[in-house]
Structures are given as structure tokens and as C-alpha cells.
Amino acid sequence: MYLVADINVEICAAKNCKLCTQYCPEANTILYSDELGKDKGFKYGSAYVAVDRCKGCAQCVWVCDNMAKNHAIKMVMIDQLPQAALTENITYGEKSTTAVLTSPVVG
């Protein structure tokens, strides 16, 4: 198994800094959804990780902890994530994306 980034929606939706999306070295890996978080009553949406593209470098963790000081991102073993976003389940909209979360591990 291997580590991927996991974003805490409740912290992210409260802060909404979007720094991790700008500092991830991989394209379209940390995405932003207006809907995530709103279902839990937050004003803003949240960032989330397309785990099939994440290479596990943890640069987003450093940025979230040290630049944004939000501590919303942790590295997690991929089989410890019950549900996650995968590229094939992500839909792009005008100003945001939506993702249907599924189990990232097959079988």
C-alpha cells in the first residue's frame, strides 16, 4: 500500500484558502468543489484529492501546515480511505468540479 493526501473537508471548507491546489506539482490532482462542505452547512466549498493521480509527495501537507497554518491535510494509506475521488468520477463545471466518492481500492 502507499500514502496519498487526504483533506479534512470540515477544516478546508471553513478556511477556503485554495493554496494546496496552487502548490501541488501534479496537474488536476487537488481539485476544488463548491458543493463539498456546503452539505455540512459551511459557507465555502472544499478542496479534495483525485487519489489515482496523487504521487504522495506531501508538499500539500507542508503548505497547509506551514503557509496556510490550517493543518487540514494528512497523508493516509490508500486502503485506509473508505471513500475517495477518482479521475473517472470527476465532473468539471463552469467554476467548480464535483466528484462522486467511491472506494479507491478494488476488491
Partner: peptide, 28 residues
């Protein structure tokens, strides 16, 4: 740059090392 994460980028998956700053620069 402030819209990153909400549109499809022209850069796709590639074989560069995890966490490479060069990759981030090319993406930007």
C-alpha cells in the same frame, strides 16, 4: 492561478518524480 483546481489543465499525467519543483513550475 487562483482558478486552479476548477478547470481541466493542459498538462496531463507524466513520469517526473514525486514532489518535483520543476513539475510545479511547468504546471504554472
Amino acid at each position: 492561478v487562483s482558478q486552479m483546481g476548477s478547470f481541466k489543465e493542459v498538462l496531463e499525467e507524466h513520469p517526473m518524480c514525486a514532489g518535483c519543483a520543476m513539475t510545479l513550475f511547468i504546471r504554472l
